[in-house]
Design a protein around this nucleic acid. Structure first.
Length: 153
DNA sequence: GCCAACGTTGGC
DNA sequence: GCCAACGTTGGC
């Protein structure tokens, strides 16, 4: 199943992802998003990399699931902004996977364009109030996004 | 900076 | 277990 992952480019952009061999997706503190990483993602699955809080927001490229799920180490670190005092090594609360860079689109596909595309009107990221940082993407939506990316060259 | 959406927390 | 208050997300 393809995915969509959001990141604020000021914090971590697809260019940042391209510079590292792999990136642990730390800091997700939403149960639904966690469950997708923990229970449903498989190594090798692809994810649209979405730039949120950007100008403009939109899909910047493609990443790939690069590890099995494991406990997010930042939950145990008292100095981390993601520290969770209720998590223990014996009973971790937060799990993550690593992502690796696949492709940076020549041109970002703006959210405005996604919303205007009749084939993508039901894509979750286009829906009002969708704040979830990790969402599954239907195969036809994924293919359509790739097509838009390619068409823009 | 505003504010709608919505997840989480905590008092009861 | 309800629900008001609060905090965060994220487009605009």
């Amino acid at each position: 199943m393809p995915w969509l992952i959001k990141s604020e480019p000021d914090v971590f952009s697809i260019e940042d992802l391209a510079k590292v061999p792999r990136e642990p997706w730390t800091g997700v503190r939403n149960y639904q998003a966690r469950n997708y990483m923990w229970k449903e993602m498989r190594v090798g699955e692809l994810a649209l990399f979405y730039h949120s809080n950007a100008t403009p927001p939109g899909i910047a490229g493609i990443a790939k699931v690069a590890s099995a799920p494991y406990p997010d180490p930042t939950q145990f670190d008292p100095d981390s902004e993601y520290h969770d005092p209720k998590a223990t090594e014996e009973r971790p609360r937060w799990y993550l996977v690593d992502f690796t860079h696949v492709e940076t689109f020549a041109n970002l596909i703006p959210l405005e364009q996604l919303k205007a595309d009749s084939q993508l009107s039901e894509m979750l990221v286009c829906q009002r109030g969708t704040r979830l940082s990790i969402t599954p993407v239907e195969a036809n939506h994924y293919q359509r996004v790739l097509k838009l990316a390619g068409a823009k060259g």
